[in-house]
Structure formats: structure tokens, C-alpha cells
Amino acid sequence: MIVTEINRLFGLKYPIFQGGMAWISNGQLAAAVSNAGGLGVISSINEGEEALRREITTCRSLLHNPDFPFAINVMLMSPQAQAAADIAVEMQVPVVITGAGLPTPYMKKWLAAGIKVVPVVPSTGIAKMAARLGACAVIAEGGESGGHVGDLTTMVLTPQVADAVSIPVIAAGGIADGRGVAASLMLGAAGVQCGTCFLTAKECGVHANYKQKIFQAKDIDTIVTGKRLGHPVRSLKNAFSRQFADMEYNTNLSDQEIESFGAGALRRAALEGDVQNGSVMAGQCAAMLHEEKTAQQIIVDMFAQAEHVLACAGKFLTEEESHA
């Protein structure tokens, strides 16, 4: 077994969080991950307040044990952030994951309600601020991840965040198998968050075309667009992302025109299955995923491999000096 502070802090069998993916992470997926011993996460920016309440209720109804924890993800840049923040308190959601900034305006209320808050951080500065605000852990998310991305990679961000804060760090971005889990622990993390691999889970309700597109992806098949707009996004290369990239370089187009071209693109791919004209957000690890598995199987396989590679790591240590 791999046991870290994250297992104890959140009451998990495995120190793994599922990433909060807009339009994709619903109550059904979150419950599957939580039932498998990880932390399931519901995205709060799908279809508004009622939908969020419904997904939380769905998640609770599917949990095998009412004490299994789950979380909602509050995207702080979203106009729905305030409403989601209130719903977390009202519905006594055990854990809140935040993204895109610092959750300063909501922290007092969440902590008073006994909610554990885990911000996603793209830099050591944000990590330190988050710890000071009362976060119980932070997620150091490298730019290998899908969706909204930062500049730093998981390899360099994780150890620096681990050095910067005394609360546990969860590594995210590029982790899709046990080697990634083992490496994360070696980098100073106490757990991992995975988005793309749970996107392909059997219990994930994303359109079948979306999953297929991920299974077909090669290592070089993702692209980051939207840098010009200040919020870069990683997705799979397709007609949509190529055109978006072209439009970014076109100085005759206003930012607003580009924004409106991108509006609704994720929904188009995730719900309607238009994987050519929609945004198929995915991390660089998409190419490491080949088959649909249950959330349980994903986690079991990942941690079995992690245990194996960690157990074998001693082979690199020797008393002999090498002159090779």
C-alpha cells in the first residue's frame, strides 16, 4: 500500500484526486472515483446552480458509504464562482478544490463550515498565499495537464512547491500511470491528481467520440492555444484548435473575436461529440491511455505499478563505484 498524509487528511484509500473537468466531471464520475478509494471531484461550471446541486445529490446517492469524501471544483474566474462557493457550504460538501487564482474571498466561510480547501497552484507564490489562507493541501499543476494550464512543468513545479509550503502537495499534470505516481512522490508530493485518465473511465459520461479521440492520440497531439488571451488551454489538435491557433497569430482579429470563436467549444466536443469543431481538452498524457477501464481499475493498476517501481528503485543504489 502507498500511504501518505493525503490518505489520512482526506480519509482516502489511495492518495489520488480526480481532476475537476468542466462539462465532464459530474456526480457519477466523482462517486465512482470516491467509491474506488480516491477523491472524486464534481466540476461546478457545467450548467448552473441547479445542475451543481443535482450532481452533488447524485454523487451522494451513489456513494457506497456516506462517509466517503468527495469534492467540488470552484473555478474562481467563472461568473458562477460565488454561487458554487455558497452551494458548497449549504450542501456541506466535504472538500473544495479551487482553480484559477486565490480563493481569498471565500476562505473564511468555507473554513468556518469545516470544508477542507485545496487550491490548484501554478507557482510557489500562490502556494504560499494559499497555505497562509488556511488551505489544508495544494495541488501543484504543471503545464502537461489538459484544459487551463500554467507555464511550469510538473517536474519543476512540484519540488519547488513542496519546498515552499509545509502543507502536503499533490502533483498534477502528465500523470497517467504508476510511474507518474512514483515520480510525484519522489518529487516531494504526497499524492496525485489525474484528469485525463479519469476522462476515459467507464463511468465518465463524456461523449464516446471524445474518449476515442484520446485513445487515438499520439505523444505530439496536444497543442496550447489562448496564450494571447491570457488563459492558455491545452487540447488535442483538430480543426478547431488549429484554427484557433491561426486566429491568435492574426493581428487583424480582436481578442473578442477570438474569445467568441472559442465559446462553447468544450461543450460541443464533450456533450455533442463534435471532436473536429469542438475543443477536445486533454493533457499530454492522452497518448498513454489506450482502453476504457473502470475508475476502480484505473486506480488499482496505477498504484500497483507505483508500488512495483518504488520497490525496485533500490536497484539504483549500490556500494560499488562505477567507472563506466
Binding site: 487564482g101 507557482s123 507564490g125 500562490i126 504560499k128 498565499m129 500554467g150 491570457g230
Partner: peptide, 11 residues
């Protein structure tokens, strides 16, 4: 200066 720079400066 982006939002990450702002945090560094504030610190």
C-alpha cells in the same frame, strides 16, 4: 505583470 507576478510583488 500578470496575476502570478502580482502575487510575487505583494509578497
Amino acid at each position: 505583470l500578470d496575476s502570478l507576478d502580482t502575487v510575487e510583488i505583494v509578497m
